[in-house]
């Protein structure tokens, strides 16, 4: 791990799709025998969490935290999806090991195609940026952020963005 403090500039942040853009459609594997299309989730907010790799040695990191607070996302009727370039079997083993209760999508073949469409693929090292997108029920990106690769973005930005969506205000 780097000992550096993060800086304001995040390489890769410039190319990421910004609020107001339509979210590029995709269909990706969510398990060895099932796929999921973004369009099928129309009508509810979607949180896309691009992350670099399943087994990166982070204890209690980003995905574990999201897993712990799924109820907070559900309050907004939001569906959380993790995306990396790992294959379906890798995702399956990782999700089981970490008891993850949300889908991990495989942006595996062609590698990184969806990340590329969202402007968050790192050609230099073949993984995605640590990027978050909040998409509203109409399929429009309402919030996005790209974190330095060594800085875990947490969930506060996502929750604030979900809280700011007009139609899908808290269901309770």
């Amino acid at each position: 791990m780097s000992t550096r403090q993060s800086t304001q500039t995040t390489p890769g942040a410039e190319s990421a799709l910004t609020p107001g853009s339509p979210a590029p459609e995709f269909t990706l594997a969510r398990s060895p025998d099932e796929s999921l299309s973004l369009g099928d989730l129309r009508g509810q907010p979607v949180v896309l969490a691009f992350y670099s790799a399943d087994w990166s040695p982070v204890c209690g990191g980003q995905l574990a935290l999201y897993n712990e607070i799924l109820e907070e996302f559900q309050r907004f009727d939001a569906r959380l999806l993790g995306i990396s370039v790992d294959g379906v079997w890798c995702h399956k083993a990782f999700a089981e090991d970490k008891n993850l209760e949300f889908d991990l999508l495989s942006d595996f073949e062609p590698k990184g195609e969806v990340a590329g469409a969202y402007g968050v693929y790192r050609d230099s090292d073949g993984v995605t940026e640590r990027a978050l997108f909040v998409i509203d029920g109409d399929g429009v990106i309402r919030w996005s952020t790209v974190s330095p690769i060594d800085v875990d973005p947490g969930a506060d930005g996502i929750l604030a963005a979900l809280g700011g969506l007009p139609e899908q205000e808290a269901t309770r």
């Binding site: 000992t3 209690g60 990191g61 935290l65």
Partner: peptide
């Protein structure tokens, strides 16, 4: 505590805040 922490920007365990600012270093 957990919910408040997440809303304040806690991003895993442990997360340190020094005078209210998240410590992103080691």
């Amino acid at each position: 505590d957990l919910r408040g922490g997440v809303r304040a920007g806690a991003n895993g365990t442990p997360t340190f805040f020094i005078n209210g600012v998240r410590h992103d270093g080691d």
